[in-house]
């Protein structure tokens, strides 16, 4: 079984900050807007090096989204930065009308997504954002798994013409994808090859899926781990091919099972290759305060939960 090495824990938001800073140098049309969370979003370097292209909007996310939409008129490529909760639910109508329906080239970059935001609790831990954003026609939805991939995705979305939701997080997590690796929007990444079960994971759950695959391997279950960084458009072919081979699927995401990756996978498979599925996700609940590790355990979002789901779905074949 192919194994991956954690080159040192890093936060995905720092990958965004590094990517944005590189874009600042490479592409003079890239502008950045932030709603009073410059440090949290790791946008300080862009701000320091490109002050004329950095827009501090204050605690006013609706205005930020509207401004970003307007800035595209004349050729700028705006990247907005705030927490996932304030990037989506708070400004849904602004995104819907001024960005998505208007077809504007805005990149909505959302940190502190999911339950691993931790101690701040449920007011800040959005578990519904993937659903909200994938419902918008024309919106590309990306959830990256580690520092390197977040940096690569940040660079890639600047070259994609159209609105994008880029979701990443707060905690330091394993960094295991290649440095300066290629990021193809909409292309699944097969991490391990397996025959007994397919684990389709996104975001922070990808590393957990790899850990789960090791445990499963020791138990004689060969798991194929697929990293779905792009939830929309979904790489249906990769999912169908793997499901046909393994005949059982686990999806894993830091999001409500309603509206998330799991439901998208279930739709693709029910239409093309009906397959038993178990979803590792939050169960239609709000989060709460706690450390990221405690919350991942309590809400069943870690490697252990994935192992359990895999055994269950294999038994259902």
């Amino acid at each position: 079984m192919k194994t991956y090495t954690n080159t040192g824990n890093k936060d995905t938001r720092s990958g965004f900050g590094a990517g944005l800073e590189e874009l600042g140098k490479k592409n003079e049309n890239v502008v950045a807007l932030c709603a009073d969370l410059t440090g949290s979003l790791k946008m300080d370097a862009f701000k320091a090096n490109h002050p004329e292209r950095f827009f501090q909007v204050g605690i006013a996310e609706a205005n930020m989204i509207g401004m970003a939409a307007g800035m595209t008129i004349g050729g700028k490529i705006p990247f907005t930065g705030t927490f996932a909760n304030f990037s989506t639910g708070r400004v849904y109508d602004q995104i819907r009308q001024s960005v998505a329906y208007s077809g504007k080239n805005v990149k909505i970059c959302a940190s502190h997504a999911g339950i691993t935001l931790g101690e701040d609790g449920a007011t800040h831990q959005i578990l519904e954002d993937i659903g909200l954003m994938k419902m918008l026609p024309g919106m590309t939805v990306i959830n990256t798994c580690d520092y390197n991939q977040t940096k690569a995705a940040t660079l890639a979305i600047a070259d994609h013409d159209g609105p994008v939701y880029l979701r990443f997080g707060r905690p330091k997590v394993a960094n295991f994808t290649p440095e300066n690796g290629e990021f193809k929007i909409g292309k699944a990444v097969e991490l391990t090859e397996g025959n007994d079960v397919t684990i389709i994971a996104t975001g922070h759950l990808v590393w957990e899926a790899l850990e789960a695959a090791k445990t499963l391997n020791e138990a004689g279950i060969s798991a194929e781990v697929i990293n779905i960084h792009t939830i929309k458009p979904l790489d249906a072919n990769a999912i169908i091919a793997s499901a046909k081979k393994t005949r059982s699927v686990v999806t894993a995401e830091e999001h409500n099972y309603m509206g998330g990756l799991g439901e998208s996978v279930a739709r693709v498979l029910s239409e093309n290759a009906p397959t038993p599925i178990e979803m590792v996700a939050t169960q239609d609940t709000f989060g709460e305060s706690g450390t990221p590790a405690q919350l991942m355990e309590k809400y069943g979002l870690n490697a252990e939960a994935i192992v359990k789901a895999a055994k269950k779905v294999v038994a259902r074949k």
Binding site: V31, M67, A69, T72
Partner: peptide, 14 residues
């Protein structure tokens, strides 16, 4: 309620 925000963005790009 969205037009002034959009206009500010367009004005910034100008």
């Amino acid at each position: 309620g969205q037009g002034i925000s959009v206009s500010i963005g367009a004005a910034a790009t100008k």
